[in-house]
Amino acid sequence: MGAGHGHKLHFHGHSAVHRAPAHLKILALLAFMIVVVATPRGWYPLFGAYVVAIAAVIAVSRVPPGYILKRSVVEVPFLFFAVLLPFVATGPQTEVLGVTVSQHGLTAGVALLVKGTLGVLASLTLAATTEPQDVLAGLERLRLPAQLVQIMSFMVRYLDVVTGEMQRMRIARESRGFSARNPRHWPVLARSAGALFIRSYERGERVHLAMLSRGYTGKMPR
């Protein structure tokens, strides 16, 4: 279900939310979501307050609400699960619109829907208002091990290169009349994945040698 990846979510802007330090934004997101997750289900006024809070932050950031909503499709698979819950959960039954459903499942499904949606909206707001390199700098300021941040920065830096390489391989396959329709076509796709690994790994080796020749000693220069 990773089809939603591959495009940057960042929305260029200069609002107070954009300018806020990235490490504070990450901490705020984490704290907010822990509070949301810890809120008992059924406290609907409080969830309403959370929605208002996120809407206020989005309004201050001047990111168009449509921009955020369009990108919240990543949670669609879980909507199915939340909708399914009232029908599979046990416990006392209740009737909604003429359909008998589980009372517990219904409240749990609604809670899951609300919490999941709040999480996606809050994460999208962070992603839309923070440049990837600022997120990395923020993580470093939060004392994440330097090596982990370095790995992450290399990943972010080469993400478009590697996915671009994959896109070109796909276009090359399709321009030769290939389209994957059933499992008999797996060997072709698997060989593409293999070629992509070799290319990525060899690129990593070249990058490492280039860094060494520029005096890299295991630490990134400031």
Binding site: Q147, I151, F154, M166, S192, S200, R203, G204
Partner: peptide, 22 residues
């Protein structure tokens, strides 16, 4: 080589997760 190699392999995994198999 940890940082550049693991970074590129991570980018590879990310890309492979986008490769859909019918």
């Amino acid at each position: 080589r940890t940082a550049p190699m693991a970074g590129l392999v991570a980018a590879f995994i990310f890309a492979v997760q986008m490769l859909n198999f019918p």
